[in-house]
Design a protein around this nucleic acid. Structure first.
Lengths: 374, 374
DNA sequence: CCCGACGCTGACAACGTTGTCCAGGCTCTA
DNA sequence: TAGAGCCTGGACAACGTTGTCAGCGTCGGG
């Protein structure tokens, strides 16, 4: 058999990120496999084919397809017939090329599988749908290069707008795009070195209130386990923790704070360390949903009861013993607000970039109200 | 100010679904708002601009942008410089038009916010990324028309392939697309009236085993709460339940089965009814994660202990009292398998459509092992 | 009966990119 | 030094669609 392994050969839409400007476009390997030039996979019928079959002009088909006025019912019928017979479907690429708008927006987030981002992207999709746009999304996996790669690939697709949950902290690479008219809104975390719309939760205030809640219930040795401080939300929540402690006149021991990647292994170790030693913490404030879940597991096997307040709500939190007290942010509202702002940018009804902060809500369920046990 | 409310005017990519063939394309309202014909939002630089600025030919720019050989380092430098100076970004629409492949695949699922679909779409995205393709996705909200609308919009975008979690049960509308070369894989549920690749979990076997587990622990009055039986997975799981009961020689009372939408209200009522009356169930098998969560809430306020086995794993299930026994399916594996098959279709290494069934796994945690309490 | 208006249709260019093909200049060898 | 061959660069058409504009027929009014 000759050349049986013809392989999927997409146009390489990935733009390798090499230099700081983000404009280096040369792939490392040169592809010489284009063996079948011009051989498109299926030969789809075009408007020309439809026109020929219906015995009308090209433009008339276009008019029918787009519901433009000025076509006799009889002619329209013939065209519709031809369309159905041939299985014609308009090629939006050509359309976009001609019209300039793609009716699609891009969403770049950290991880589609994270329960926090599900409702968020759902909300973005709803708004997009209401505006007749499709949603293209990608996960950055918390990697700045990958974020840039994705964003630029989306720009190459000429999405009308972008909703970005930043992984990196420098978004100057987006300047030419924004100047070129790509609407852009950052969510959950602010953009870096660039003036753009931002929609975030009140991470600082939420964390502060959560820690205050623990202090109000008599705790003084309170631990904090959070994400890497280079992530803005993590830094803000840490600041909230510190502020609450300071306000209460409680000096914070280094051993009470643990910042880093939030994989279960590290978090588990961090929690155990805080809970042992000469001055164990009597309460823990956790910096996000993943951390909270892991810490709950650690506490479940811990002898003494330990108070817990977590940032982000988690499902079934109310059914655990004790119920988990959390600082909840409204993921759907974040997504909705961002997307609506995006479309207002596209409307032209928006002028100056703005920073919108959504409030958080303390939900008490028991774990945060445990008294200190020493 | 004149005409301040210029509005976002995407090309209307939605294809209204009106007749059964799915080819009716005329929108109901005719749009006459195209006030600024040809006014594209930002005037992005094109290869022509780059070429002019660099003092080279058009094709030379194309070569540089695509890393094709045959350009002097010096020339390449000049071109790169022009690219950066102008903020040029290749227009993929034009590229697609020329090349025929879009390097993007579509994913149509039910609800992005459902924790079951997060890992699934994440897995699809990973595979797509590995093949250099982007992921476009949309939620059908369990509505057949909306599914069709989405799928056809994606086809108009000329996605290379489709991963579909069917909401409807008739997919003949996809025939012309598939014939035209759009790779297609159905996941989680089989396609209707069409011969295509399908990747599903062993819903029947999983449910049967889960119910058997309850029977093995002494239960005879076992309730089943599931989704609408027109959803294939729901029907299969119900069949598993029935088979297990039959095999054990237990006659099933109608009052023990409740099928319908899985909103908390209905499920709560259904559970309460089963638990009251003259012959209350001593165990419940729940048909999916949403149902399980709701039933857990009901059982938490119920006097007698009731055994529970749920389809789909849920987070923190191990930390509840008692831990929740579940029949787990591997959402990520479903997505990965489907996506890989999709790209093998695109490779051409795949010939006949196939049905792949992934096993489920019974995870015992306590709730399924409670003895019947009467 | 003629003329203008209007409704319907189609020819054509343009959108930005890539594949083909050819020209010109260079190097290398005989 | 001439010819062959290679390397580099550019002109041009094509992808499928939509906007523009002009042509044709019909209809009503003067």
């Amino acid at each position: 058999m000759l050349d049986a392994t013809s392989s999927y050969k997409p146009m390489d839409s990935r733009i390798p990120v090499a230099d700081r400007t983000g404009h280096r476009i040369v792939p490392e390997t040169t592809r010489r496999t284009d063996r079948f030039p011009g051989t498109r996979y299926g030969n789809r019928p075009t408007m020309k084919d439809v026109a020929a079959r219906a015995g009308v002009g090209l433009k008339t088909v276009s008019r029918v397809v787009n519901g433009e006025p000025g076509v006799t019912p009889e002619t329209e019928r013939r065209v519709q017939e031809a369309i159905e017979a041939l299985g014609f479907r308009r090629n939006d690429s050509a359309r976009v090329l001609r019209k300039g708008r793609t009716a699609s927006i891009g969403l770049v987030l950290e991880d589609l599988a994270d329960p926090f981002y599900g409702p968020l992207s759902r909300a973005v999709e709803e708004v997009a749908r209401a505006h007749g746009a499709l949603l293209i999304n990608g996960s950055s996996a918390e990697d700045a290069d990958r974020e840039q790669e994705l964003v630029l690939a989306l720009c190459a697709r000429r999405v009308d707008g972008l909703v970005v949950i930043p992984a990196g902290d420098d978004h100057r690479y987006l300047e030419p795009e924004i100047k070129a008219g790509v609407a852009t809104v950052f969510v959950d975390r602010p953009a870096g070195h660039i003036d753009a719309d931002v929609v975030v939760s009140d991470n600082f205030g939420g964390a502060r209130d959560g820690v205050r809640h623990l202090i109000a219930h008599g705790h003084r040795r309170i631990g904090f386990i959070g994400d890497m401080p280079r992530i803005h939300t993590a830094a803000e929540r840490l600041r909230g923790y510190r502020t609450a402690m300071e306000d209460a006149g409680i000096p914070v021991a280094d051993a009470w704070m643990s910042l880093g990647v939030t994989d279960p292994g590290r978090v588990r170790r961090a929690a155990r360390e805080m809970l042992s030693g000469p001055e164990p913490v009597t309460a823990i404030f956790t910096g996000n949903n993943r951390v909270t879940v892991t810490v709950i597991r650690v506490l479940a096997e811990h002898a003494r009861p330990v108070a817990l307040v977590g940032f982000d709500d988690i499902e079934l939190a109310d059914l655990l013993q004790p119920g988990v007290t959390v600082v909840a942010q409204d993921a759907a509202a974040l997504g909705r607000t961002a997307a609506e702002r995006l479309f207002r940018q596209l409307d032209g009804t928006l002028v100056a970039p703005e920073r919108i902060e959504l409030p958080t809500r303390l939900i008490t369920r028991g774990s945060g109200e445990l008294p200190p046990a020493d």
